[in-house]
């Protein structure tokens, strides 16, 4: 068994990944297929190493957007893993998840959802209900439901994910802001604008506090400045353009893709309410931090 040695399998895996990342699929695919043949000859089809190699080949196909072929391989790998590792093994959950992702990429959300749910059940069973990997699975499930317009379920899954991230990783973990953003998007789709607004403000306040310390009269997150600017616009009508920048430049320095998205989203909400100056303040800030 040339490939029985896990180090050899790993080397081959790295080689395949390297070729695939360079777009050299014409090398990566035959390499995988040859390895599969070797493995099957020495270990038989139902061997965990065969399943791993099938997963590697599936990844190469995924990167070529050949989702159907990739899904076929993952189904095969799934059967092997269930047989050899047991139905509740983390490797089974991971394969189910990736299969769900492939179906999702083909728009088959209905088929993907039960796979994702099974992956969730396994992870909860093996890792406990509050493990960050459970939260990640909840995120995928939420997204699949979102694509089917099942917003109540989406809301429930994101809330649970958020609870896990906040309690296990802390309020400043990037996953918290990301999930709040996703939850806010779900609120918007349901017309729950106030709830979305609250979440966006929480994200911006938290990002600000992490960078500049607690909020007080001299240290305010950008959205407070935006609202103050909006409220004082009538008073300023005689005094010319707004010049009192105070310390709010600070808020613009909080830079991350999530914060940037949040600035734009809250800006759009302000605009919807006719709060144009507040919207502009956030939009300016978003374009600067890009």
């Amino acid at each position: 068994g040339r490939l029985r040695d896990p180090a050899r399998l790993r080397t081959l895996h790295n080689l395949v990944i390297q070729y695939a990342s360079q777009g050299r699929y014409e090398v990566a695919v035959p390499l995988c297929k040859q390895a599969l043949e070797d493995l099957e000859k020495t270990s038989g089809h139902d061997h965990p190493d065969v399943a791993t190699m099938l997963n590697i080949l599936a990844l190469v196909y995924r990167d070529q957007n050949k989702y159907k072929e990739a899904a076929h391989l993952l189904n095969d790998a799934l059967a092997i893993r269930e047989k050899t590792l047991g139905k509740d093994h983390p490797a089974v959950a991971a394969t189910l998840n990736n299969l769900a992702v492939l179906y999702g990429k083909r728009g088959k959300y209905k088929e993907a959802e039960p796979l994702c749910k099974r992956a969730l059940e396994i992870r909860e069973k093996v890792l406990g209900k509050f493990h960050p990997d459970v939260a990640k699975q909840l995120n995928n499930l939420a997204l699949l439901c979102q694509n089917q317009g099942k917003y109540e379920e989406v809301e429930y899954y994101y809330r649970r994910a958020l609870e896990i991230y906040e309690s296990k990783l802390g309020a400043d973990d990037p996953n918290v802001a990301k999930t709040k953003n996703n939850l806010a998007t779900c609120y918007l789709k349901q017309g729950k604008f106030k709830d979305a607004e609250t979440l966006y403000k929480e994200i911006l306040t938290r990002a600000h506090e992490k960078e500049f310390g607690s909020v007080n009269n001299d240290n305010k997150p950008i959205w407070m400045h935006a609202e103050e600017r909006e409220e004082s616009k009538d008073k300023r009508r005689d005094a010319g353009p707004y010049v009192e920048y105070g310390s709010w430049y600070k808020a613009c320095k909080v830079d991350s893709p999530t914060v940037n998205t949040t600035l734009k989203s809250l800006g759009a909400l302000y605009r919807r309410q006719g709060k144009l100056e507040a919207a502009e303040t956030l939009e300016e800030c978003a374009s600067k931090s890009r």
């Binding site: 895996h13 965990p48 399943a51 791993t52 997963n55 590697i56 990844l59 995924r62 790998a77 893993r81 590792l85 983390p90 490797a91 959950a93 991971a94 394969t95 998840n97 990736n98 769900a100 992702v101 999702g104 990429k105 990640k136 995120n139 995928n140 997204l143 699949l144 979102q146 953003n181 996703n182 806010a184 998007t185 918007l188 893709p257 998205t261 734009k264 989203s265 800006g267 759009a268």
Partner: peptide, 20 residues
């Protein structure tokens, strides 16, 4: 803007399938 937000959301692949 909302489109921008949802475009960020993508189903996440689990790379651990390659290490078992």
């Amino acid at each position: 803007d909302q489109q921008g937000a949802s475009r960020q959301q993508q189903l996440e692949w689990d790379d651990s399938t390659l290490t078992y």
